[in-house]
């Protein structure tokens, strides 16, 4: 529980700061505008979290989400069957990557870095110049206006709940976390680590596909470079949300909160009217601040 406390506190502090700077944000429309672009980031962060959970790191997340966005905008509306097959194919490719990394004991960081260029190239091939349209149902879902609570908040809660159930509560999730925590023990228990890592990557692929589709639902159109930022954002979101690079120790709810916090940090700095030259630095400073706070909390825990 303590693992979750810090991300929640960071988010609440930021929300208060934003409301204080810009009271207009304190409304149904305002909350939606603040958070709707966080929904695809949250999905990508959960995908990254699954990879980090099994002890790897995915540097192709942004390029992969961009590719999904291109398929969703360019192919899905005109040819739903082909589009669906391609999206499933992308998930299968992710699973194959996981199997390859485990079977040949390759460093995931290198494999995914290489794959980022493959995904990027495929995206440009599918959508050579920005365009395409989001399928109508997708826009309808992403821009829905449910009563009382904005869609962005509802979507975030659903993502956190689903990720929590799959990763923390299911037997499948326990096995994947064990793979990240102690792969040798898993293999001695008679489980195929190759199959498990493939499943982990497939699960990440599912969330990443959802991220690309959600993004297109919001932007209504595709672009081969649309989500390149997501690689670093998703990694930062996982860490901000209480996850650790050591494998096996992650928090799905924390990851979603981390993604929301990062998005909000951008808005906060923009409302402050900070010059763009300082914004990247300031975003980094916020990250370091939260991580430093985490170290302090952990040391206090150890002493207690």
């Amino acid at each position: 529980m303590i693992r979750l406390a810090l991300p929640v506190i960071s988010l609440v502090v930021l929300i208060c700061a934003v409301f204080w700077l810009q009271p207009r944000a304190m409304s149904y429309v305002g909350l939606n505008l603040l958070f709707n672009l966080a929904v695809p980031i949250a999905l990508a962060t959960v995908a990254q979290m699954v990879i980090i959970m099994v002890g790897d790191i995915d540097l192709s997340m942004g390029a992969f989400v961009s590719l999904i966005a291109c398929i969703t905008a360019a192919i899905l509306p005109g040819n739903p069957a082909l589009g669906a097959v391609m999206l499933l194919g992308c998930i299968a490719a992710y699973a194959a990557l996981g199997a390859l990394i485990e079977a040949r004991q390759l460093p995931a960081i290198v494999v995914t870095l290489g794959m980022s260029f493959v995904w990027g190239g495929a995206a440009v091939l599918i959508l050579p110049s920005p365009g395409g349209t989001a399928p109508g149902w997708l826009t309808a879902v992403m821009k829905a206006k449910p009563p009382l609570v904005p869609m962005a908040i509802i979507a975030s809660i659903i993502i956190a709940a689903v990720a929590h159930l799959v990763v923390m509560r299911s037997a499948f999730g326990v096995r994947l976390r064990a793979l990240g925590g102690n792969a040798r023990a898993v293999s001695r228990a008679g489980r195929s680590t190759i199959a498990l890592r493939a499943w982990a990557y497939a699960l990440a692929g599912v969330f990443a596909v959802a991220a690309g589709m959600a993004l297109v639902g919001l932007t209504t159109s595709g672009d081969a470079n649309i989500a390149l930022r997501y690689t670093l954002l998703s990694i930062a979101g996982v860490i901000l949300g209480g996850g650790e690079f050591t494998g096996g120790r992650v928090s799905p709810i924390g990851a979603v909160i981390g993604a929301l916090t990062l998005t909000l940090a951008g808005s906060f700095l923009s409302f402050l009217r900070l010059s763009p030259d300082w914004q990247i630095g300031a975003q980094g400073a916020i990250l370091i601040l939260v991580l430093a706070a985490r170290l302090v909390v952990r040391q206090a825990e150890k002493r207690a």
Partner: peptide, 18 residues
């Protein structure tokens, strides 16, 4: 800060709020 479409989309949404 980063020349990314998603970041600019967020920036425009902030401007609506402002």
């Amino acid at each position: 800060a980063e020349n990314q479409a998603t970041e600019q989309a967020a920036q425009i949404q902030n401007m609506i709020l402002q």
